[in-house]
């Protein structure tokens, strides 16, 4: 089986994440950039299939600036076999629509049996790219799985909803996304770290992909700094604190 895992480099959630005051774009130098944890979980899904069947091929695909190579390297050190890096200055600021079109173009020739991604990134949190990729490739989307099983020709799993659990399955090839409830990702071992550099990474530019040219790109209309936290509401007990507290909770729809 050939599994392609979509990975994205995002600012470490452990660091302070800021927007550039002048442009409104993400300030990538403000902290560490790491493989999105949800993508590591997606990779873990693929690596577990490979643990059980060594003939499984795991490819990671990332679109991003030079530094995204580091995210690919991390995935390779964890056990992926090879990487594809879509690297093109013209893609700076690509929105979800553009990103999905480019990813789909790169995926088209990979011959993937299944494409695994996180359900939404921890930075943008749009959660639409995998569905758009599936649409471009005319594949079923099996989204937001909390458990899943990949068997030859079939993916099945469960999706948690507010009103219950959905058991879903689809024939392969398909696009699958997982939530943070799937298994935690493994650590790369020393051997993995040392061999990662020897694994092949293909770098693709836009010119090498069949993506219709488009002048469309995301623009920042306006941005504001998050307002500073204000002091909370204080209820002074004059014998009626219970009532006031209940009123406050109801008023703010907290109960």
């Amino acid at each position: 089986m050939k599994i392609v895992v979509l990975i994205k480099q995002v600012p470490d959630t452990a660091d302070e994440r800021t927007l550039d005051a002048a442009t409104g774009w993400l300030n990538r130098d403000a902290g560490d950039n790491i493989v999105d944890e949800i993508n590591e979980r997606a990779l873990e899904v693929a690596l577990r299939v490979k643990d059980g069947d060594k003939s499984t091929e795991v490819v990671v695909l990332a679109m991003g600036p030079d530094e995204a190579a580091k995210a690919i390297r991390k995935a390779l050190s964890m056990g992926a076999d090879s990487g594809i890096h879509i690297l093109d200055d013209a893609l700076a600021g690509a929105d979800a629509t553009r990103t999905a079109a480019v990813l789909a173009a790169a995926l088209r020739d990979t011959g993937a049996d299944v494409i695994v991604a996180g359900n939404e990134s921890t930075d943008g949190r749009g959660g639409v790219v995998p569905a758009m990729v599936a649409e471009h490739l005319n594949l079923p989307l099996v989204g937001s799985l909390t458990t899943l099983e990949l068997a030859p020709g079939k993916v099945s799993g469960e999706r948690q909803g507010e009103s219950g659990t959905l058991s879903i399955s689809a024939g392969l090839p398909a696009v699958v996304t997982v939530t943070e409830r799937t298994a935690e990702a493994r650590f790369p071992n020393f051997k993995g770290i040392l061999t990662a550099k020897r694994k092949p990474v293909t770098t693709l530019s836009l010119a090498e992909l069949e993506v219709p040219a488009t002048p469309a790109h995301a623009v920042i209309v306006s941005h504001n700094e998050r307002p500073p936290r204000v002091a909370g509401t204080k209820i002074v007990d004059e014998g009626n604190a219970g009532t006031l507290l209940a009123e406050y909770l109801v008023e703010n729809r907290l109960v």
């Binding site: 050190s77 650590f187 790369p188 071992n189 020393f190 770290i193 990662a196 550099k197």
Partner: peptide, 15 residues
């Protein structure tokens, strides 16, 4: 080196 950084990062995460 890049590898040493990756080694340190992994051990730190593990620890």
């Amino acid at each position: 080196t890049e590898e040493q950084q990756a080694v340190v990062e992994m051990v730190r995460d593990f620890a």
